[in-house]
Amino acid sequence: MAKLLEAAPGTKYRAALGVAYGAGLRVSEVAHLKADNIDIKRMLIRIEEGKGRKDRNAMLSPQLLELLRLWWREGKRRSVLLPHGRLFPGRSYTDPIATRQLHRAVCEAAEAAGIRKRVSPHTLRHSFATHLLEQDVNIRVIQVLLGHSKLETTALYTKVATRTIHAVTGPLDRLMTLMQGQTRRGPPAG
């Protein structure tokens, strides 16, 4: 993820892709964000009419906020951001950036970073969920952050990494450890 974000073609795309990964947003949700959706006081991103026309809050980390501030300063300097307008404007400052343009930005970043796997903006959302799961965040919390109504949908997104699998102690290993402990101490009294 770090390589992909670093290779993004410019501050605007680094911030947009950072939102997709850092908050687990769908590409359409990123595209339709407005400056007013960023709640700095509560450190939240307000998603209005996401999938299923549902509103929800997404997380806003300090690092993501800093990335957005960098884009805000550059966008203001270039006169492409309006005070209550789109956070990531398209060709017209009042229109949202096209999701297809965000897809192209991800592909360009992946190529520039030397990533050979096929990636899309949705890969960032998958990675968000997987990385939270690897940090032992409860899957129910991940479900809420992703805006899923069904836990089964969230489970499809969370690919467990090899490192996580290796960290799990299997039931046979636990049993053998317990049995070895009993052998060293002798049979239980009884």
Rank of each mutant, 00 (worst) to 15 (best):
R163G: 10
G75E: 03
I40W: 03
T130F: 02
A129H: 07
G22A: 06
A58V: 00
F128I: 06
P89L: 00
L146M: 10
E111D: 14
A112F: 01
V80H: 07
R104N: 14
H126C: 09
G52A: 06
E6T: 09
R77H: 10
R140A: 10
D136A: 14
L44W: 02
A58F: 00
L151I: 15
K150R: 15
W72E: 15
V119S: 04
R184A: 14
K54R: 14
T164P: 07
T130H: 00
P188C: 05
K34W: 00
Q135F: 00
L151C: 05
Y157R: 12
A113D: 09
K34R: 15
L60N: 04
L5M: 07
T158P: 05
R140P: 04
F128V: 05
F128K: 08
T164R: 15
L67M: 14
T169M: 12
D136S: 15
T158D: 03
L64K: 08
H32P: 04
R69W: 00
A161R: 14
I142D: 06
A2D: 15
K54T: 09
D55G: 09
T177A: 15
R73E: 14
K117P: 04
L25Y: 06
Q135Y: 00
V27K: 08
A20H: 04
L67D: 11
A112Q: 12
Q180E: 15
W71S: 07
Q101E: 05
L70H: 12
K12P: 05
T169A: 14
